[in-house]
Nucleic acid binder design. Structure first.
Lengths: 185, 185
DNA sequence: GTCTATAGGGCGATAGAC
DNA sequence: GTCTATCGCCCTATAGAC
């Protein structure tokens, strides 16, 4: 067996997705994922903090994209949040079929949903920090960020639920507009 | 040893809070909690699905309180969500010192924060379902529920962060009003 | 790469409530 | 007698330590 096939992390990610999708998250052991990727379980844990994290790599990039869009936007706090939401769609909305597969795996397992939620919470915290750096005071910064994450959450869910690709950008803008409308007394 | 002292779950909850607070969540074993409560580790797992759940018992009551307030409210979707937020404060905002202790334990540990977030997500889903039963269509029901949970989250956090009891009801109403104001274009 | 503690599930036996 | 809480022992997999 070649010791050095390169991109062990990438192979582990693929192997994990396939096994989680076919037999379920709980019914898959780290040893099996590692074997399929041609490494040992020890190597798995050197690349990923735990069994769940292998599905969530790359979330930092998303966060950075959104935060820099927020920083570069004009207008009030919610306008900046809207810009951040728009900025993530070309990146996230590219592969509808893959996103559906991945979300099916996550939705089927409570532990994976927990991990997903904490990623969203981090994103919310990052947006709030970006808003504070724009001079938005608390609690407005945190509230606008939370509203944005709520929109993100629902828009993404609706996009992956649909069997055909309805366009993440369109879903995001629709949800954002409706959220603003709902808040009117 | 008496096999039958009653309220094992209650003793386990207390023991867990004390140990998690004094030495931290990760540094506490289930065996230690069980020993302090006078039962075995196996009994712990018959009362609580896992080591985290022992801190989150009673969240169903909160959810029911909020959903029935939402069902009984008048006005639009956001007004109903506001009523649900108001309804939880007498229940949740009673003991500031205890809430602070509990939140300190949860905030100190990522796994506990994950569990807290999934409880919030369930609450959000329950509110959305309540709104749909009022005839609110999607995605409005889910968006209003998410906005409400965002307000809940920030208001509760601000209330427990403050060293003195600023009043959960006041924090909740303030955050709710500001969220609505922020959404205006 | 090996070694180990802990989480958490499965199962049958048992003790008390009724 | 039934029903339910608890025990005790065995097991595997995770994840951290060395």
């Amino acid at each position: 067996m070649a010791r050095w096939e390169g991109d062990a992390a990438g192979r582990l990610r693929e192997a994990a997705m396939e096994l989680y999708a076919s037999r379920g998250f709980e019914q898959t052991t780290v040893a099996e994922i590692a074997a399929r990727a041609g490494v040992t379980a020890r190597t798995f844990f050197r690349h990923f903090a735990d069994k769940r994290e292998v599905l969530f790599a790359g979330s930092e990039t998303l966060q950075e994209t959104m935060v820099s869009a927020l920083a570069g936007a004009t207008g009030g706090p919610m306008d900046a949040v809207g810009a951040a939401l728009d900025a993530c769609t070309p990146f996230l909305g590219r592969d509808h079929a893959y996103s559906r597969r991945r979300q099916a795996v996550i939705s089927a397992n409570a532990e994976l949903r927990e991990r997903e939620l904490i990623k969203m919470e981090r994103l919310s915290a990052a947006l709030a920090e970006g808003l504070r750096q724009r001079g938005v005071p608390e609690p407005d910064a945190s509230l606008a960020a939370q509203a944005g994450i709520g929109v993100f959450h629902i828009a993404f869910a609706r996009w992956v639920e649909a069997e055909t690709d309805t366009g993440l950008a369109a879903q995001m803008r629709d949800a954002f507009t409706r959220m603003r409308a709902l808040a009117q007394p």
